[in-house]
């Protein structure tokens, strides 16, 4: 009796317990990181892009109706980022200025800053100019209180936390919107240039 317990029942129970815990915690192995957890929690694709309260580099309120008709590659960033944002931005620049003409006609780029205190429309305008002043690449910043903005972004699936140093830890993903402003793909920029472009073309064409 003791042997059945120690050799079969106990190991089996422990195995079931940890398996169930890991399956539940990772959503059936769907998400292993905090970032992917919030992305998954935000809902399945396609889903509507929220009507965030944004202003562009000319301090004009965003007009989501004008976004319709073309695909949009959206990324969330902040200008004082000492880590990945700069790398992601230079890669986006590479994609943007080397797109084939057919894709160029169908796709715009949108960069949205969540650093409501430092990334003013003037600063974004300087950034836009330094990035080549492209008419098909717009920069926006949020109009609102930081905690409200972060809460809205978290609902959308973008996880952001502020560090004591003033830097942010945040989800780094490209959101591809279709011509109806629905999120149709979420692309990890670290997969490499070729794969990112392939993912975009898969949806656009």
């Amino acid at each position: 009796m003791v042997n059945i317990f120690s050799l079969i029942i106990l190991p089996f129970t422990i195995f079931i317990f940890w398996s169930a815990a890991i399956v539940q915690w990772t959503g059936n192995f769907s998400y292993f990181t905090t970032y992917s957890y919030f992305l998954d929690k935000a809902g399945s694709l396609p889903r509507n892009f929220p009507q965030f309260n944004l202003v562009d580099q000319r301090e004009n309120r965003v007009d989501y109706e004008s976004w319709k008709g073309k695909y949009k590659l959206v990324d969330f960033m902040y200008m004082h980022c000492s880590e990945v944002c700069g790398i992601v931005r230079s890669r986006l620049s590479e994609y943007h200025y080397n797109l084939d003409p057919i894709l160029q006609e169908k796709l715009d780029f949108v960069s949205i800053s969540f650093d409501v205190h430092r990334d003013t429309p003037e600063n974004l305008d300087s950034l836009w100019r330094s990035m080549g002043s492209s008419k098909s690449w717009k920069f926006y910043t949020f109009n609102g209180n930081e905690s409200e903005v972060f809460a809205q972004l978290l609902d959308f699936g973008v996880y952001i936390i502020r560090e004591p140093s003033g830097d942010f830890r945040h989800t780094v993903m490209h959101f591809l919107l279709d011509s109806e402003n629905r999120v149709v793909a979420i692309i990890d920029p670290s997969i490499g240039k070729e794969k990112v472009l392939l993912e975009i073309k898969k949806e656009v064409f």
């Binding site: 940890w18 915690w25 957890y37």
Partner: peptide, 13 residues
């Protein structure tokens, strides 16, 4: 027990 513990806590989340 050991393998389950390590696996669970090494998950980034």
């Amino acid at each position: 027990f050991f393998i389950g513990t390590i696996t669970f806590w090494m998950i980034p989340r």
